[in-house]
Structures are given as C-alpha cells and as structure tokens.
Design a protein around this nucleic acid. Structure first.
Length: 884
RNA sequence: GGGCGCGUAGCUCAGUUGGCUAGAGCGCUGCCCUUACAAGGCAGAUGUCGGGGGUUCGAGUCCCUCCGCGCCCACCA
C-alpha cells in the first residue's frame, strides 16, 4: 500500500439516496465549504447576484428550475478554482408582504392613526382566535402595520430558508440579506441621496398612472394590458360659428369613456384628415355641459379609428397625456385618487352655466362605473347620444397586481431619470445593454426593445407603507404649508432614516409641521428602487468597502426573462449612476417552465405538482437533473419522466461506484495504467472533460451534463462489463492480493479509481448530494471543494487509442445482440466469434482480446483482417455454443 | 401593428462554423432474476427534420415566402 493511498473505501452494503439532503446540508453548513473567502482578490472571485425571491412561504417550480441552473454554474466555478461569492437575499419589502400581512392578521394600514403600543391584531392566518374567518380588517397605524409585516416575514423567512436549502444551492447562507433590513434601507437611501445630489432624482407634479384600489402611483414597468369589454358611445359635439354661437352642425366622436366628458379639453383629428381639416382652429361645445373646446390636429389621431376624431380628456388614457402635453392643452381633472368624480363642481363647468352645473351635480362623487351610466342617461335625455352603444373588447391598462383599471391623476411624485425623456441618456443605457454579455445571446433584444420603448422617467414614489422611506423632509412655510422646493436631506451617517418619525439635521422634533419647521416625506420608494441595488446591498457598498472592492461589479446575474425590463434594466440604471459601470459582466436568462396543469386543464383531477412533493418523492438530485437538462434560456415543459431518469442516474451512480470500489479500485501510480483498453477509456474521459469544461465556460451547463452522462452510460454498459473480470483478478496468474496483483489487474483497478474520481467531480455541480455521498466513502473532504478535473489536475495517461474501446464495445454489442436474438441469458457461453475488419481495428481488438472474451463468455475469438475489403464495415459473426 | 423565440420519432428534447446511411431519453416491443444495480440489464422498431421555393457538389443547418405556436412591446378615442 503506497503512502498516499487513502484508507480502504467504506462502502455501504445497500447504498441509498434517502436522507442524503439532510445529512449533507448539515455537513456543508458545519464545514463551511461554500463560505466566501474574503481574502481573495477581485480577479480570483466569481460573484453572483441572485435576484432575491419574494418571501411567500412557497417554493415555485420555476424558482427551482432557474436557481438550480445557476447553482450548477456556481459549483463549477468553485471547483475551477474561483472563490465564489454567492449570497442569497429575501425580497420582503413591498406590496406582496403588505397584502399578506393584511390577510394574515386581518388589518389594514391607516397612516392617520397614531401608534398604539398595545395594538393586537384581530387574529392570525386570517382567522380569529376562536377559529372564525376574519371578515373585516381592522385599521392600525403605519408603525403598527410595519411591525406586523416584519413579524410575519421573520417567521416566514426561517421556513423559507429551510425550503431553499432543500434544493442544494451552494450559497453562503452567512451572507443572507433582506431588502427591508437596516442595511438594505440604508443602501437604498444612500443611493437615492446620490441620485438626488447629481440631479438624477427629481420630483414633479405630473399626470400619473394611479391604482385606485391600492391608492398608489405605479410605474410604466408595472403595467399590463388586459382585454376588457367596453362600448363605443357616439356623442354629438356642436359646431359654432365665428361668433361662438351654435351653428347647428354637429361633430360626432366615439368614446368608450363618456363619463370623462366633463374633463374634455379638445377634439383631435389627424392633420391630413380632410373631413375635419376645415374644423382645425375652430371651437365646438361639448354635449350636456356646453363647454367650449378647440378642435386641433395631431398625427397620433387615427382617421380609421372610430369616427376619426377623438375627444381629449385629462386624463382618460396615456394618449390623452401625450396630446395634453404636446398640444399644451389645459388640465381639467375630474377623477380623484379614490376613483370617484370630484364632489365639488369644477370651475369650467360653473362657467358654462346652471344647466352644466346641474348635470355635473348628478355625477359628482360617483364611481367611474356609476358615472358612466348616469352620463349615458344625461346624453340620451338630451338626444346627444347617437344610437346604441356598440360593445367592443379592448385592451385596458392595469397595475399588474391590481384588479381595477388604472386612472390617471395629477400628483407630486419622485422620479429617477432613465432615458425615457432624454434621447442622449437613453442611448447611454442602450449602450450598456450591448456591453453586457447575454446568455443566450438573443435575450439582449428584450433589453434593447424596452429601452427603445421607454416613454417617461421612472416613477419611484409609492403611497404605501411597508417599504424604504424616501429620505427627505420639506420645509414648512409661514402659512404652515409644505414647501416641496425646500428639500432637507439627512446625514449619510444617520441612514437609514424614517422622515415620518426622525428629525432632520438642524431641527428640533417640536418643529414638525409648524411654520418655519419641517415635514417628513410620507411616501416610500418603489420596491424596484431597492431591489435594483442588490449588487450594492450584497457586496457591502458604503458599509464594507473592502468586501465591495473584492466582489463588485459582479460576474453573473441569473434571472428570468420576464424581469429584464424591470429588475435587470433598473439595476443597470442604478449602477451606472452610482458607479459609472455595469452592475455585472454577464446575465444568464433562464427559460420558462410550461405548466402541465395549464396544459392538461381538462384532466386536472387533483394532483397539484409542487416542488416539495417532487423533492420528497424523487430526491433533490433528481429534480436538479431535470432542471439542468434544460438548455439555457430554453422553455421546457414540465416532465416528471425526466425527474425519474434523474433519480435513476443518481442510483446508478451509487451502484456503479460501489461496484468499482469493491472491485479494488485503488489509487496507484497512473504509470501502472498500461492496458490499451484502460488507456482508451481515459483518453475518452479526457475528451469529455474538455467538452464539459468548454460548455461550462460558455455557461452551457446542460451540455456539460449531457456529455458527462453519455460517458458515464458507456462507462457502465461497456467498460465496466469488459473490465469486470480483469479487475476481479480472475485471470491473474498469481493469487489475488495486492502484492501479487498482475499488471493487467493493477491497471484495471487504477483506471476504475481514476475514472470514478473524475466522474464524481464532473457530476458534482448537478448531483451534489449523491456525488458527495460516494466521495465520502473513499475520499477526504468534500467533492465540492475538489478541483475540477481539467488542466493540471489531469494526471492520467491520455495517449491511448480510443478505437480499442470502440471496437471492443461494438463486438460485445454484437455478442449481446446474438444472445438477445436467441433469447438466452447473457452469461450463455459463445462458441466462436469471428471478426473481419481493417488491420487497424483488428489490432485494436486484439489489444482487448481477453476482456472481450471474458465479458462475452467467448470460447474462441477469431480476429481477421485478411478478408477485409477497404470501406466495408466491421463484420462480426457470432456462433452460439450448440449445447445451449 | 412591431420585436424575439419556437415548430426534428407517439412524448420531452439534442443537432455547435452546411458534410459520411438524422441522434438521445421516455414510451413501445422482445428477451434476460448476469454475484454493482429487477424502482434493473440487454436488444429492437419508429422520422415527407411545419409547407413551398431558392443558393450549393451537398441544406435539419444559409436566403425568401407561407402556415401554426409562445412570449414581449404597442396610442384604452
């Protein structure tokens, strides 16, 4: 036994996959294999910016899919010698948590209420203490509400971490962060203050997309269109003569929103529309209210839509905003933030006379829906509604989390510049998109397309509660009114701050809200304004500059395609402003999982497939196998069959390893690997390592898995069978035993050890549990800390002739074929096998003669090149023993 | 309406810069309890590469066009 030889392998009698996850997760935590070594320099580090998942308590199949793919890359990088910085975070700030807190505790936030230290929510889990469903939520102060949110997520996050650990991510859990934590809030506010001081953040009074239900402004990135039923109402506007008196002629427009008639500020038609050209510059009066509005021209008006002329209201849709801005129309807002028509009669209606006022009063305070019905009645009564409304289905803008159409209201909000209103800046961000490496390459189009389509700056203020407060105060003027032009900022050292309770520098708490004092900004930042800073939060920007310098800009940003326009783009914007760089070198975009439930809706008789159930039924490695079989960026149908294959592969790995180790696989001088068949195997292995390495370097984990799996398959089916007898020492002249092992047997055993060792490492990124288990039978330390088998670590002889294995496997295959055809057992003896082939291939076969004879149970093997004709294929004749 | 992607065996998918009779796994069929593995092994059958044109000595691969599917974006009159 040589000095460097490991202890005798400890191979279990019945190897099994059960319980490996718990066992090794605990072991990895204890040994710290995934702990980031912060003495590493930037060039040695591979840092990964995982988008922190929303804490929901549930793990989604899609998350498992994408995160496991990234983990395989992380594990490869670690084995390839990089110091992997792989933090995880929880995105717990924002609306989803607010909603869950509302449902869970049965409360809602009323920011006008004072803090109640003794506040007790009506219940938990949506139920009262006596188990009844909570029907009405109870109001509480903002601070009480935030406390409840934090209580909820703290409990959830413990469970969530356990769940995530189950999928075997090699993250350094000591780096775990939360987007609502003090550090994250401080980072977010620090970045905001930087944006403010450089003029990248600004506040403006402007038309804003507004969600009535949540009572908050929303950003362009959070919109989605949904098809909703509507109806065209044909309305008669009245033309006037030069003196402004009615001329008796009418102009007809079609609108789906007659309730906004009181907010009408103009009619607009295309400049080249001959039907309406004579009207441009003239004035018409609205039906019902008789308010005079101009007829104007704009190329956005579409002649073939409706009657070709549209009414512009402030504001019915985003086109109205465009027209209002570009045509410098007046603002006549009638819809309030509660989604109802203003209760006080607007001045322009009053000016139109008592009839108009009377009409408006029947609408005042009504919801959009009721106002529409009332308006139709008013129009009908006056004969100004032509015909019946024509039902249509049309796209309507919604907040992606909302269930009522968005309204547009004018309000003061905070914005970040993002190029939406500045072609030069837009070009800067477009260029950033081209600098970023994309996997797959075509995903860059989505980024480009989004940047090209931006039509406004990024609205970041939200009228919500559970978020990062906008860290500013405003001066209060002599009349006690906030002066929004006087912005007071905190000292950086004071971050994070809450302006609603903290006092700005230079003021006393008693000056809050009094003339000459200050008032805190009540709004919070959009959740994206914080999650767009995950590289800064994770890498310790402004908090741990040493760590930051070793990890930022990060190497990799893995994520789904649906958040390119939001999360990815926003993160690029923030890093560009704060650091003048990209936040990462490369983005890998995973594909979608096609939901089987959706597909098989008709068959949905129960079984909801959850990742947890799959992980329990098949084991984590099996689920990881399926996830990493999918090509980067490629959509994949959920396939339980693939998961079963993964499980089989893992079991196969256990059994094949057990066999190899029990056959005497042993570490000896690789120079003892002398048999041509063994050298052929290792030559092939060398190619596989090269292919897998190349694939991983291109972030194509799936290809790396594919070539490794194919090799392992051949290794088991062909090589193991061929070498079995020789490894056992069946043909040894000497008595079995180390000291007297023949060179042929020693060669086989050394080859088994080398091959198994390499195969375990090659599979380690994909099947971390089973490879670690087998590794522990005979190797010290963790396979995940082992060196990737390439380059300098390739210490086996590779000058072999691959043909030896190929020909031997082909002949063995023919022998099996013959036995299969004869319907006899594989251990049946074969009388003769005659192989006719080229001299080269015959020589190769000759080199493996004894192994083929052993594996095929062959009595006589005839190898002949004399009758071989050039270009004709290998000819193999198998004659079974007549006795059988 | 614009953009991106996809359409290869019954199913899920590979097919790298155009190159030897188009591949894998599942499923299917048959056989084998072989002492690593019967929740296994071995073997077998299966394709107008969505349709139609074109370039080429040669096209699943490149070009054009049509059909179908998915996703994203788009101004809700």
């Amino acid at each position: 036994m040589s000095a460097d030889r490991a202890e005798a392998p400890q191979v279990p009698e019945k190897p099994s996959l059960e319980g490996l996850e718990t066992k090794w997760d605990a072991a990895w935590t204890a040994s710290g294999v995934y702990t980031f070594d912060r003495s590493a320099t930037r060039d040695q580090v591979f840092s990964i910016d995982t988008p922190p998942p929303t804490v929901s308590g549930n793990l989604h199949m899609g998350s498992v899919f994408g995160y496991v793919q990234t983990d395989a890359v992380a594990r490869y990088q670690r084995m390839a010698g990089r110091d992997v910085f792989y933090p995880m975070g929880w995105d717990d700030n924002g609306l989803p948590t607010e909603r869950r807190a509302q449902n869970y505790f049965g409360v809602h936030c009323d920011p006008t209420l004072p803090y109640d230290p003794d506040f007790t929510p009506p219940g938990t889990e949506g139920k009262t203490p006596d188990g009844k469903k909570i029907k009405r939520t109870e109001p509480c102060s903002r601070r009480n509400f935030v406390e409840l949110c934090i209580e909820l997520i703290t409990a959830d996050e413990v469970v969530f971490e356990e769940t995530w650990r189950r999928i075997g991510l090699s993250v350094d859990w000591s780096l775990l962060y939360q987007t609502i934590s003090d550090d994250a809030r401080a980072t977010s506010q620090r970045a905001f203050l930087g944006n403010l001081s450089r003029g990248e953040a600004y506040q403006a009074e402007a038309p804003t997309l507004w969600d009535v239900t949540f009572a908050t402004a929303v950003a362009q990135a959070e919109l989605e269109d949904r098809d909703r039923p509507g109806a065209y109402h044909r309305l008669a506007f009245h033309r006037t003569d030069a003196s402004g008196a009615p001329s008796g002629d009418d102009v007809f427009i079609e609108t789906t929103r007659p309730e906004l008639l009181a907010a009408c500020v103009a009619l607009v038609a295309h400049p080249e529309d001959e039907r309406y050209a004579p009207l441009f510059g003239s004035t018409v009066t609205t039906p019902v209210f008789g308010v005079a509005v101009p007829v104007v021209a704009h190329e956005l008006a579409e002649p073939d839509k409706g009657s070709g002329i549209a009414m512009v209201c402030t504001f019915g849709d985003t086109t109205d905003v465009t027209w209002w801005r570009e045509l410098e129309l007046p603002t006549r807002a009638i819809i309030g933030r509660n989604g109802r028509l203003r209760t006080e009669t607007p001045g322009w209606i009053t000016a139109a006379g008592p009839d108009a006022v009377a009409a408006y009063e029947t609408l005042a305070g009504k919801t959009v829906f009721s106002a529409k019905e009332q308006m139709v009645e008013l129009l009908g009564a006056r004969g100004e509604l032509v015909g019946e409304p024509k039902p249509i289905s049309h796209p309507v803008k919604f907040y992606e989390k909302g269930d009522k159409p968005l309204e547009i209201v004018t309000s003061r909000q905070w914005y970040f510049r993002n190029g939406g209103r500045d072609p030069e800046l837009r070009e800067v961000f477009a260029r950033r998109g081209t600098e970023l490496a994309w996997v797959p390459e075509h995903m860059r189009h989505r980024y480009q397309h989004w940047v090209d389509g931006l039509n406004g700056d990024w609205l970041v203020s939200r009228q919500r509660f559970f978020g990062v407060p906008i860290p500013v105060w405003y001066g209060v003027d002599d009349d006690g009114e906030p002066d929004h032009d006087t912005v007071i900022t905190p000292d950086e050292s004071a971050l994070p701050v809450d302006p609603s309770s903290d006092t700005p520098p230079g003021f006393e708490a008693s000056q809050r809200g009094v003339p000459g004092g200050f008032i805190g900004e009540a709004d919070v930042l959009d959740t994206w304004a914080t999650s767009s800073l995950t590289p800064q939060i994770a890498c310790g920007w402004g908090r741990d500059d040493d760590l930051f310098s070793r990890t930022f800009p990060m190497d990799l940003r893995p994520q789904g395609p649906e958040i390119i326009r939001t999360w990815l783009f926003d993160t690029v914007v923030r890093a560009h402003f704060a650091h003048g760089t990209l936040p990462w070198k490369r983005a890998t975009i995973n594909g979608w999982i096609l939901d089987p439930d959706r597909k098989k809706m008709s068959k949905s008789m129960g079984n909801v497939v959850t990742p947890i159930a799959l992980l329990e039924n098949y084991g984590t490695d099996a689920v990881r196998y399926w996830s990493t079989s999918a090509r980067p960026g490629t959509d994949t149908a959920f396939d339980e069959g693939q998961i079963k294959i993964g499980r089989r592969l893992a079991i196969k790995l256990l059994n094949a390893s057990r066999f190899a180790l029990n056959s005497g696989a042993t570490d000896v001088d690789p120079a003892l690997i002398t048999e041509p068949l063994d050298r052929a195997l290792l030559t092939r292995l060398d190619d596989v390592v090269a292919m897998a390495t190349r694939a991983f370097d291109a972030f194509d984990y799936a290809r790396a898995l594919e070539v490794t799996e194919a090799f392992f398959w051949d290794f088991c089916n062909d090589y193991l069978e061929l070498v079995k007898g020789r490894a056992y020492g069946n043909r040894d002249d000497a008595v079995a035993g180390d000291a007297t092992t023949s060179p042929a047997t020693a060669s086989a055993r050394a080859t088994l050890a080398v091959a198994l060792d390499a195969v375990l490492r090659l599979f380690a990124p994909f099947l971390p549990f089973v490879t670690e288990e087998v590794w522990s039978w005979w190797r010290p330390g963790s396979v995940h800390a082992a060196t990737w088998p390439s380059g300098e670590s390739t210490s086996w002889p590779t000058a072999g002739d691959d043909t030896v294995l190929t020909v031997a496997a082909t002949v063995l295959g023919e022998i099996r074929h013959a036995k299969s055809d004869a319907k006899v057992s594989m251990k049946t003896a074969v009388a003769t096998v005659k192989v006719t082939d080229s001299p080269e291939r015959c020589a190769a076969l000759e080199a493996a003669r004894n192994d083929v004879i052993d594996a095929g149970v062959v009595t006589e093997l005839v190898i002949d090149s004399a009758e071989h004709r050039a270009d004709s294929p290998t000819a193999i004749e198998v004659t079974l023993d007549p006795v059988t």
